[in-house]
Simulated assay, not measured.
Amino acid sequence: MKMKKSFKRYNRLLWKIEFLSLFHFKQKAIELLLKHLKQHEYPIEIEASGLVRLGHLYVDLKDFEQAAEIYHKAYLLAQELEFRYNSTEKEILSIFQKAGRHDLYAYWYEDFLNRAKYDKRFKKLQRK
């Protein structure tokens, strides 16, 4: 029951953030998301998802360094989980490069490729 309640609360928060972003209040959306993540306890999956969304907001503001730090924090939080591949991983790797964080790029590139053991779609990230 607690997970269901957390999920509903998180979905309401995402709706508010998307609304703010739509009307170019990205900094306000960032503040709301940070405040909410500090005030509420969420399961790891939801907290990591919230941090990834926060990273996306920083990317929208062209603050690639901050986005890279947030993405790193999100993936560290979820590192032990078997999450499924989606195109976000490829985008995040490019943000690490834009931020000049080649250390994070190399670390997460290897981690993502190792995840092909349980989800073959991670192989899409392999350099050609």
Rank of each mutant, 00 (worst) to 15 (best):
T88A: 13
I70W: 03
Y109A: 03
L76I: 00
L61C: 04
R84H: 06
F83S: 05
H72K: 05
K62A: 09
L93K: 05
K98F: 09
T88Q: 10
L77I: 00
E80W: 00
A67T: 06
P43W: 08
L113T: 12
L81Q: 13
I95D: 05
E65K: 11
I70F: 02
L33W: 01
A78W: 05
A99W: 07
S21R: 09
E82A: 11
H56W: 06
H24Y: 05
E31D: 13
W108Q: 08
K98Q: 13
D60Q: 06
R84P: 04
A106F: 02
Q79T: 01
L104C: 02
K62L: 02
A74G: 08
K38A: 15
D111E: 15
L32G: 04
Y42M: 08
E82G: 02
H56E: 15
S21C: 11
E45N: 14
Y58N: 04
Q66H: 04
H36K: 14
Y58F: 15
L93G: 10
A99V: 07
A78H: 06
Q27V: 06
G50R: 13
A48K: 01
L33H: 04
V52S: 07
P43E: 15
I70K: 03
L32M: 13
F64L: 00
Q79R: 13
E80A: 07
K90M: 05
L113E: 15
Q97S: 08
L37S: 12
I30R: 00
H72M: 01
H102G: 09
L34W: 02
D111K: 11
E31L: 07
F19A: 02
A74N: 07
K90Q: 10
W108D: 10
F112G: 07
A99Y: 07
Y75E: 10
F96I: 05
Y75K: 00
Y42Q: 12
Y105H: 11
E45S: 15
E82Q: 12
K62Q: 11
E69G: 06
I95Y: 03
Y58E: 07
L61K: 05
K38G: 13
G100S: 09
A74Q: 06
Q79G: 01
D103R: 10
Y105M: 09
E65M: 02
D63M: 04
A48Y: 05
A68D: 03
H72S: 13
L81A: 09
A68Q: 02
E110D: 15
D103C: 03
E91M: 09
E89V: 09
F83N: 01
F112P: 07
R101W: 02
A99N: 08
R101T: 01
E110T: 12
K35W: 04
S21G: 14
F19C: 04
Q39M: 12
F96N: 01
Y42L: 14
Q66L: 09
I44D: 15
K38P: 08
A106T: 14
E69R: 04
Y107W: 02
F83A: 01
D60I: 03
H36F: 09
R84M: 10
I95G: 05
H36Q: 13
E31P: 00
A48Q: 09
S94E: 14
Y75M: 03
K73M: 08
V52R: 12
